[in-house]
Design a protein around this nucleic acid. Structure first.
Ligand SMILES: [Mn+2]
Ligand SMILES: [Mn+2]
Ligand SMILES: [Mn+2]
Ligand SMILES: [Mn+2]
Lengths: 147, 147
DNA sequence: GTGTTTTTAAAGCCTTGGCTACATTTTTGT
DNA sequence: ACAAAAATGTAGCCAAGGCTTTAAAAACAC
């Protein structure tokens, strides 16, 4: 236990953690909207601004702005006064997000979180689960299923 | 299976999930800065703007603004050109955040996430772990420790 | 003690993601 | 067909959280 070692308790990679958390946050809204639009299209054949806004708990101009950003990023398409649809890339993202969301909920329940709480928390948590962590969750759930 | 029933598969509490996730996000930065300031005070006796900025991975004007918000919210105090300190309320928050962060890391590791990844992901995840979920994590870890 | 370096402050710009208020278009009911 | 209602668009406001640039203060070296 040298002086070097004991001084070394301020990890130099700390900034990276925060930068990564901020990057994840920047994706979060895109991900939630993509998933939501996908849900709506599946349930009702199209995703209308009003329904998107209502389910996201925001006003319709806010939903409009989010959709504009999705379009700008190449994830969605729409024409004035018509519904919103996902590009292939957008649909792909939605599918990954949906699967990850489910896995997070399952893991939470598996470690003893009540289902409704798991569903609530997962909405925020999901965006910060890395690929590596997601894979670990899947392995854990598989192992638990195999009892 | 009436028309009414088949229409009814969109849970009405969905907006709440997103609203809660947004609320959690609004707290996230405050929490991280409080914890960081607490760390710095413990390690070096005071928290200087330069050090805060460097560890958070932001420029110093950004750190200054964050500290201004902490002060506005009654979590920190400081005078020009002097270090930043936490109020009782701020120190309290920092302590809870630190404990929660540790618990999240431990749980991730317990389900098979590599420690470094756990540390990275926890920085974002922690802010979306509700009290109920946190308690569930603690129970799970206790049970696992008792083997 | 003076000069240089480091730290902090201050001003101003940008994007995101909320909102309200108002205008326009589409849909619906009769 | 047309009036009323609903949906969508548009403009403009705000706060948060990034940034750069410039100025002032403090700390340090000599
Ligand atoms: Mn979400
Ligand atoms: Mn989700
Ligand atoms: Mn954090
Ligand atoms: Mn943390």
């Amino acid at each position: 236990m040298t002086k070097d070692a004991e001084d070394n308790d301020a990890p130099p990679n700390q900034p990276e953690r925060f930068q990564q958390a901020r990057a994840a946050q920047a994706m979060a809204i895109l991900e939630d909207y993509a998933e939501m639009i996908s849900d709506l299209i599946e349930e009702m054949g199209e995703a209308r601004i009003t329904d998107i806004a209502s389910r996201m708990g925001v006003t319709h101009p806010t939903a409009t702005k989010a959709v504009a950003r999705l379009k700008r990023e190449g994830l969605a398409v729409s024409r004035p006064y018509r519904g919103v649809f996902l590009t292939d890339e957008g649909a792909d993202l939605a599918e990954r997000v949906r699967a990850r969301h489910r896995t997070v909920v399952h893991l939470l329940v598996a470690v003893g979180v009540p289902p409704e709480t798991a569903e609530m928390d997962a909405e925020g948590l999901e965006h910060h689960v890395s690929e590596i962590t997601l894979k670990a969750f899947e392995r854990y759930l598989d192992a638990a299923a195999a009892k």
